[in-house]
Simulated scan of single mutants.
Amino acid sequence: MGQAVCEIIRIDRPQLSASGRNAPATDAVEPRVRAWLTTQSAIVEDWLDQLVAANGDERLIGLLHQHAAFLRDAADN
């Protein structure tokens, strides 16, 4: 498997918001969501590479390619 799949990611527990509730502030959540999207994109791309190397189903390859592009776009915006 690719390095991205094997990488261990540490996610810290959310901090209390200014109101003292357990809901994390938006600025604390967004970077974690973007990091997760980037990781998911790398995992999909790893599976995609494996399918291409194994002459996998063309439809599945196309769908995974679109999904990886969606995840990359979501992480970048």
Rank of each mutant, 00 (worst) to 15 (best):
M1A: 15
M1Q: 03
G2E: 10
Q3A: 14
Q3E: 15
V5W: 09
C6E: 13
C6L: 12
E7D: 13
I8L: 13
I8T: 14
I9A: 13
I9M: 11
D12G: 05
D12W: 10
P14A: 15
Q15W: 07
Q15A: 14
Q15D: 15
L16P: 03
L16T: 03
S17R: 14
S17N: 14
S17P: 01
A18V: 12
S19P: 00
G20M: 05
R21T: 15
R21Y: 08
N22P: 01
N22A: 15
A23Y: 04
A25V: 09
T26E: 13
D27E: 15
A28T: 06
P31T: 00
V33H: 03
V33T: 08
V33M: 09
A35D: 10
W36S: 08
L37N: 01
T39G: 10
T39C: 07
S41E: 06
A42N: 07
I43E: 11
V44R: 04
E45S: 14
E45T: 08
E45Q: 10
W47H: 10
W47V: 09
W47T: 08
W47I: 11
L48Q: 09
L48A: 06
L48Y: 01
Q50M: 11
L51F: 11
L51E: 07
V52N: 02
A53W: 05
A53P: 00
A53L: 12
A54H: 02
A54K: 03
G56M: 04
E58R: 12
E58D: 14
L60E: 12
L60R: 12
I61P: 01
I61Q: 01
I61M: 04
L64N: 09
H65M: 11
A68R: 05
A68D: 06
A69G: 02
A69P: 01
L71C: 08
R72V: 08
A75D: 01
A75V: 05
A75L: 01
